[in-house]
Amino acid sequence: MRSVLVRVVEGVRWYVRELTGESTYDRYVAHVRAHDPDARVPSRREFERLRTDRQDADPRQGFRCC
């Protein structure tokens, strides 16, 4: 029973992270490290700022309600 509950909780956590975009930074870091291990990886704050600026410059890249 516990393993089923753990899988359900993990599934819900994954879904919420995907829905809110929280996992985007994790995927970005994995991508940078895979392609250039010596590259500087921006902090999460820097990444979010760059992402927001890019969306503001071209609203077709992603939905922004505010």
Score class of each variant (00 low, 15 high):
Ser43Cys: 07
Met1Asp: 07
Cys66Met: 08
Ser43Ile: 11
Leu5Ile: 08
Val6Asp: 03
Val32Asn: 02
Arg2His: 05
Leu19His: 09
Pro59Ser: 08
Glu18Ile: 11
Val32Lys: 00
Arg13Asp: 10
Thr52Val: 14
Arg60Asp: 05
Gly11Ser: 08
Asp36Val: 05
Val32Gly: 00
Glu22Arg: 13
Asp53Phe: 06
Gly62Tyr: 06
Arg2Val: 08
Pro37Ala: 15
Ala30Val: 02
Cys65Arg: 08
Ser3Glu: 11
Arg27Tyr: 07
Gly11Gln: 05
Glu48Thr: 15
Arg27Ser: 06
Arg60Ser: 05
Arg44Pro: 04
Asp53Glu: 14
Ser3Trp: 04
Arg40Asp: 06
Asp36Tyr: 01
Arg27Pro: 02
Arg49Tyr: 13
Val32Ile: 13
Arg13Gln: 13
Val6Asn: 07
Val32Tyr: 04
Tyr25Gln: 04
His35Val: 02
Asp53Gln: 13
Asp26Asn: 14
Val41Ala: 03
Arg27Asp: 09
Trp14Met: 11
Val12Ser: 08
Val9Ser: 05
Asp58Met: 10
Arg13Gly: 03
Glu10Thr: 11
Thr20His: 02
Ser23Cys: 10
Tyr15Pro: 01
Glu10Lys: 14
Glu46Pro: 03
Arg49Phe: 10
Ala30His: 02
Gln55Arg: 15
Asp36Arg: 00
Gln55Val: 03
Leu19Val: 09
Arg17Glu: 15
Glu18Cys: 15
Arg27Met: 12
Tyr15Val: 12
Arg64Cys: 03
Arg51Tyr: 01
Gln55Ser: 11
Leu5Tyr: 09
Arg7Asp: 07
Gly62His: 03
His35Ser: 05
Ser3Phe: 02
Val16Lys: 06
Glu48Tyr: 14
Arg2Cys: 11
Glu18Thr: 13
Gly62Leu: 05
Cys65His: 01
Arg49Asn: 14
Pro37Leu: 07
Pro42His: 11
Glu10Val: 10
Asp56Glu: 15
Phe63Val: 02
Gly21Cys: 03
Arg60Lys: 11
Val8Glu: 07
Thr24Ala: 14
Tyr15His: 13
Val8Thr: 10
Gly62Val: 03
Glu48Pro: 00
Glu46Phe: 08
Gln61Cys: 04
Gly11Ala: 04
Arg27Asn: 05
Arg45Trp: 11
Glu22Thr: 14
Ala34Met: 01
Val6Cys: 07
Asp36Pro: 01
Cys65Ala: 11
Arg33Thr: 01
Arg49Trp: 12
Arg60Asn: 07
Arg2Phe: 12
Arg7Phe: 00
